[in-house]
Amino acid sequence: MTVADWIAEPTNWVYLVLALVIAVSALRVVTSTNVVHAALFLVLALAGTAGLFLLLSAEFVAWVLVLVYIGAVIVLFLFGIMITRAPTGPNVEVDHQRRAPAAMAAFLIFIVTAGSALTAFGDKQISNLGRGTSTEVIGEQLLQRFVIPFEVVSFVLLAALIGGITLARKDATPAEEMAREGSDA
């Protein structure tokens, strides 16, 4: 497959735009000096990913990504940023001094994963797309074949809920403890 063939496909133009958006915003997520900006760039990267999923005819996952990530998780992040009073000014040291080893590690991982993908899959095509995966199929599969992982995940969520509450709850000070005991008696 030549480059010309690749460009000739209209979906690839869509891919290229989305990929560019994702790559740039992901880069900004890890380089931005402003925490709020980083979180908002993550929104952009996730939105691009959702677009990719639509391109791959995975509508349900795409909308779940939008709803859960962009709708809920990012809001949670913004709250986290506010509560921890993360430094938001432009001149704050948000990164470590030594970035080279980290960049090297990241580059190594990129080489390894991308290299293995290239050698393993060459120019395999994704074809027969466009009919879309109906939510009905996903729902059926989720509650039939994957019902046990589904239950496990629900349990994980419950555990996370309880864990989050327990961790974030403010412990009563000794004075308050005594006051409460006094009222009981």
Partner: peptide, 20 residues
């Protein structure tokens, strides 16, 4: 923690390269 994580990542990558 991050130095540990970095060492882990580099080690994993080197292992894969070594296997190849």
């Amino acid at each position: 923690v991050q130095q540990y994580a970095g060492a882990t990542v580099i080690g994993a990558a080197l292992l894969v390269i070594g296997f190849v």
